[in-house]
Amino acid sequence: MIKALFTSATGMNVQTTAIDNTSNNIANVNTNGFKKGQADFQDLLYVSQRAPGSDAAAGLQVPTGLQIGSGARVAGITKVFTPGALVNTQNPFDVAVEGEGFFQVTLPSGELRYTRDGALRLNAQGNLVTSDGFLISPQVTIPTQAVSVSVGSDGTISVQNAGALNASTVLGQLTLVRFQNPAGLSAEGRNLFAETASSGTPLIATPGQNGVGFTRQGFLERSNVDVVTELINLILAQRAYEFNTRAVRTADNMLASTTDLIR
């Protein structure tokens, strides 16, 4: 009975983490390029009072064992990199990735980060930056005399200048980065991911080549969170939590009944 208390407590902790993860998914339902997290669970150590296949008599083995589990734990929360819906914003500096790949971002410290958020903007120097002001790598600078900016599906950035509206000038090219295991990236907040030993090294490629997707100007990728699915997960976690609390209550009542025997 005491074991049931501790076993149910692990179940309550597991469902609390599941609700925390679901809440984060729902909170970011409108976050550009957000990728939902999926909680993975594992059962804990088993106490074997009789192992399956143990000898019952000469030449005979028991068909089943007697093993009592110790509850559950959260094995990890996996980022699911399925694509989100592309929304037409008609903003020339919004660029979505259609397919696999990340934009490469340079922090003020010089460190590199990676993002699916293509809401690019211009800073005071005309450089393409994220909404937090971090430079896109490779760096592209839009001249002040540019009257229009075009981003091709291969990431080529060209402009038309005020003095030559019939001609376009290529300024540079956006590149994309892919990873062997994107689920191994570390989520850093601000729509940024960091490379880890589990993600593998970044592979830089031109959009549309070597397994990366295309760039789409005037579009943004929305979150891949399905609100209906998350609400169902929320209800399931809530009910599972309630079942574990009921198991605690049942074990407590059994202990109380045992205590009453000596009164």
Rank of each mutant, 00 (worst) to 15 (best):
A187G: 04
N21I: 07
P182E: 01
G101K: 14
T141A: 08
Q139I: 08
V177G: 00
Q173Y: 12
F243K: 13
V95G: 00
G155M: 10
G76Q: 09
V170P: 01
S48G: 09
G53R: 00
F219L: 06
F243Q: 14
L185H: 04
G84M: 05
V29H: 09
T201W: 09
G84T: 12
E111V: 03
G152R: 14
T106G: 02
S158W: 01
I262S: 14
Q104N: 04
G65A: 13
E221N: 05
T215K: 05
I262H: 13
A39W: 00
S137D: 09
N181D: 08
G69P: 10
L185V: 07
V248Y: 11
S199V: 14
G200N: 05
V212E: 00
N13K: 11
S8M: 04
L234P: 06
V149C: 08
R249M: 13
G33Q: 09
L122D: 06
G33I: 11
Q145A: 09
G69K: 06
E230M: 08
L220A: 03
A85Y: 01
S137T: 14
L128P: 02
T106P: 04
A197N: 15
D43K: 03
M254H: 07
V129T: 09
E195T: 13
L174F: 15
A205P: 05
T196Y: 07
V47G: 13
A18P: 03
A146Y: 06
A167V: 14
S223K: 09
L5S: 01
F81I: 06
Q42A: 14
I26K: 02
K79Q: 11
A18N: 10
P207Q: 07
T229E: 09
G118Q: 06
Q61P: 09
Q61S: 07
T175R: 15
R222H: 03
I235R: 06
A146N: 03
Q145K: 04
A237T: 10
R239D: 08
R50K: 11
E100M: 02
E111W: 01
R73W: 01
N91R: 11
G118Y: 11
V151I: 15
L165G: 11
S257V: 05
A251Q: 06
L120K: 04
L255I: 15
N123V: 04
R178T: 05
L174P: 01
R113P: 05
T22R: 00
R222I: 08
G99F: 01
Q160N: 11
A256Q: 12
F6Y: 15
V140E: 02
F134N: 12
A162N: 12
A119S: 13
N191I: 00
A4E: 00
A162G: 12
A96M: 14
L122M: 12
V105W: 04
S158C: 02
P202C: 00
T89N: 09
T169K: 13
L122I: 06
E98Y: 02
A183M: 10
N123F: 11
A96D: 04
V227I: 15
N191D: 03
A124L: 05
L112Q: 13
S198R: 12
R73E: 10
N181M: 09
F102G: 00
F102K: 13
A75L: 04
G11T: 07
S148A: 07
I232S: 06
S186R: 13
T64E: 10
G76R: 02
L234K: 01
G99I: 04
R121P: 03
L174E: 08
A237H: 03
L122K: 06
F103R: 12
E195D: 00
T10F: 05
A72E: 07
N24M: 13
N161K: 02
I136K: 03
